[in-house]
């Protein structure tokens, strides 16, 4: 115990010392705004974040990506998140209902579309309608419907067409939409359902879910009630919903809300 006394004193000194220079410390300490964003936003977020923070010196944006369902769980478990940007309204609704997200802050900032893709070198021409003819040895990849909105939309679309039950045992679930895309890119599956914004070289679009009653993916956002950077979080979401943010989203293939 005695041996650790000098260390304790040293620690106490360290804590007390900055008191004198609090004002300067605040100017120098960068402020971290932490966002939880759906995996489907991983390509657009860096641009949104850097455009927004460009004229805010000392403000840094940290983004945690994942499936919206997983991120919702993390917010509920008390993860230090200032705002959420999810690939569906439902997980934000649930956070609002549980008091983790300000109801007034929730809004839709973009829309997306659901596409059926295949590896680029695939010669097959499946559509959502004809997917049930997929040979028994072939696989379809979608997101895990319980946690990945892209998977939930895909399941809804296939249920709407009455083909879910036939395809269920050939459908492999990815942990987020990026994993589903990777399955198709690597050619491990014959087809996959992702967002239109996911399409990259290496995969080919076979069909779009654009019929009447097809699910309409949205990007839903909100600020958290326990976040420490409320003002910044509100400002960031306003920016995303504003003209400049919308232009960036449009550039990346997202639709207007």
């Amino acid at each position: 115990m005695l041996r650790s006394l000098p260390l304790l004193l040293l620690l106490a000194g360290c804590q007390a010392a900055p008191g004198h220079s609090e004002a300067t410390a605040q100017q120098e300490e960068p402020v971290d705004v932490t966002l939880a964003a759906a995996a489907s936003l991983r390509r657009v977020m860096p641009e949104l974040a850097s455009a927004w923070s460009a004229d805010r010196p000392g403000v840094r944006v940290q983004v945690s990506y994942g499936s919206s369902g997983t991120l919702r769980q993390q917010v509920e478990a008390g993860a230090p998140i200032d705002a959420v940007l999810f690939a569906a309204a439902a997980p934000v609704d649930r956070l609002v209902a549980d008091g983790h997200v300000h109801a007034a802050s929730q809004r839709v900032v973009a829309t997306n579309d659901l596409v059926l893709i295949a590896p680029a070198d695939s010669t097959e021409a499946w559509t959502f309608e004809t997917l049930t003819q997929l040979p028994a040895t072939e696989k379809l990849a979608i997101g895990e419907p319980a946690t990945v909105p892209a998977g939930r939309y895909a399941k809804q679309a296939l249920e709407g067409l009455g083909s879910w039950d036939a395809l269920k045992d050939r459908t492999v679930f990815g942990g987020d939409v990026a994993m589903v895309l990777a399955y198709a890119k690597r050619g491990e599956v014959a087809a996959a359902v992702v967002y239109g914004t996911e399409v990259v070289p290496g995969v080919r679009v076979l069909d779009r879910a654009d019929w009447d009653g097809a699910p309409g993916p949205v990007v839903s956002v909100g600020t958290t009630t326990e976040g420490e950077q409320q003002a910044h979080a509100v400002a960031f979401l306003d920016f995303v919903a504003g003209a400049e943010g919308q232009a960036i989203l449009k550039k990346h293939g997202f639709g207007a809300p």
Partner: peptide, 22 residues
């Protein structure tokens, strides 16, 4: 992979259930 009814072993099911909040 995780194909319910085909390849979802107990460890996979635990992970999926936990992630879904179940």
């Amino acid at each position: 992979g995780n194909i319910p009814g085909r390849t979802n072993t107990m460890p996979l099911e635990i992970f999926a259930a936990y992630q879904a909040g179940e």
